[in-house]
Design a protein around this nucleic acid. Sequence first.
DNA 1: AACTGGCACTCGCGGCGTACGAGTGCCAGA
DNA 2: TCTGGCACTCGTACGCCGCGAGTGCCAGTT
Lengths: 339, 339
Amino acid sequence: MGLDDRKLDVLRAIIEDYVSTQEPVGSKSLVERHSLGVSPATVRNDMAVLEEEGYIRQPHTSAGRVPTDAGYRLFVDRLSKIKPLSPAERRAIERFLLGAVDLDDVVHRTVRLLAQLTRQVAVVQYPSLSRSKVRHLELVPLSTTRMMLVVITDTGRVEQRQVDIPGTLPADDVLELRRIINAKLGGQPLTQTPPLVQSLVEEVSDDLRPAMTTLATVLLETLVERHEERIALAGTANLTRGGMLDFAGSIRPVLEALEEEVILLKLIGEQSGSTRVSIGDENEYADLRATSIVSTGYGPGGQIVGGLGVLGPTRMDYPGTIATVRAVARYVGDLLAQN
Amino acid sequence: MGLDDRKLDVLRAIIEDYVSTQEPVGSKSLVERHSLGVSPATVRNDMAVLEEEGYIRQPHTSAGRVPTDAGYRLFVDRLSKIKPLSPAERRAIERFLLGAVDLDDVVHRTVRLLAQLTRQVAVVQYPSLSRSKVRHLELVPLSTTRMMLVVITDTGRVEQRQVDIPGTLPADDVLELRRIINAKLGGQPLTQTPPLVQSLVEEVSDDLRPAMTTLATVLLETLVERHEERIALAGTANLTRGGMLDFAGSIRPVLEALEEEVILLKLIGEQSGSTRVSIGDENEYADLRATSIVSTGYGPGGQIVGGLGVLGPTRMDYPGTIATVRAVARYVGDLLAQN
DNA sequence: AACTGGCACTCGCGGCGTACGAGTGCCAGA
DNA sequence: TCTGGCACTCGTACGCCGCGAGTGCCAGTT
């Protein structure tokens, strides 16, 4: 038993045909469309073995074969070569991302670009605060008892919160608070800030203490506890491609899952540098068991600050999608490095 | 001819039944479910008239009647009373919106709340910059040749852009620029800023002029030209309710339209105070001809700073939806007034 | 031992004809 | 002006059947 080279060729051919036609593929059409050098009967024997091993299956007795999740997995791991991008695609990426003016813009352009190139649903995580460093903190007085706290990170993210100060605070004190906070937190990774924020309170004179205590609380909330991560989404309309033949007739659960930021973050968030492919069942969310996710990390230089990826039916063009996702991630990383 | 009261009652009954069952309604079941006090035959005559007048139609000869867009329009304008919200709904709104910490949070909570209550797709426009006043402008030096420009509006929006300054700029000059800009623009409606921004350049000494010119350009771009408006969206999964019987079998064009911010803005953006209902054909976008939009403006006090609304199949519960949209808008306005 | 051609078998799909029944329009009578 | 009755329409569900793609198996060839 085991799988010799020809059986693997057959599997690859089945997957390629099925991905492009979306119809179960039979032994006869296989030999017609690929130069396998053997007869349909031989292919049938190979198919029987592949089915026994769980890489393909028959939707019904008198139909052709369809890849299983395990089949796609084998294909992705060992049978497919990453397609190089066409020059047209490279140009599209550059043109699309060029001219982005701020982080929001970069993220939005990226997610739309990904959706358009892969014709799948695209997801981009904003640079994670936990991978960012504090570049600057600003305190803007809004009234005598209220100010705005603005945190700017080295990845370009800007978070802001309004803070009610107990008692009033002269302008000089505001400057002093700002100086102290920046001296302590500036340049520090956000993951390191909690102990530093705690210690802030001890650094100020007694009369500034109440204000600093309030600020410290808000800082911790803003930077660590709350909506720490953000997500951008595009291309949901692509779910309806292929006449809804994928997704067992209902894209509802998929749309619902896509509205849950928590789920999306688990899927594409905070990646390592390598590309990850999650196929069908491998996914931990039952609602997404009919989908595959291709995701990777991105960031300036070799550093990873966030994740991005696409989600589509298990029947997807893995080599092409993987290539596109990687290329886009690299371009975005370069773009961030320039700032 | 003309429509006497009973005919209008019949139309109302048809719409109510059709909205709840999603099936063409016949004369017999109508008299069974409503106390119209007449026989099916009479209802049939009324139906014939209503059909002639274009308020209802038959999908096919041997089927019941279905409301037309004109029928819904008449219903909304003259036949329906706004449903008062249930206490449970009021409580849900309060609970959901309470505890929002900043504008982003308010908008996100609002849009999810709307989607949940109406079981439709919800859209919320961020407070429009064109309806906002400048509360404060901040210049944050990031390096010797680059700074960040932060604009804070009275509606809580914070826009920021990085600016490359020609030549270097001492800290004192930065403060001076900030002072001048704030003096000129602070408290001004953003719509009034373009001429003011122009005049900024003339107000500074020669050595600050290049920097101020650059800043003025970026200010104009940020405040007026670029992505001026933002949108939040939720509940797209609700489009698939009712087994895709609405939308003529494909929700694809609807999803595509929802990804176009420009379209959404036209639909729900910058409203007057009154609630607007756009039914089916009335909509100018062909892709949305199977949908209705209920939208209204919101803002602190009597002022309108943005729009919000929901989008669903023409077969929707108009009285309930209108009531919910209005109630949510009022709560959000109150919330904004508190800041 | 591996491959091939041939053959009988399976079974999903599409087309067709039929019975059913919900719903209608019309008309004569109250 | 409303009502009951009646003939008519027509979309849908159902059952039947033939087609054909595709299979598994086997005997024969290399």
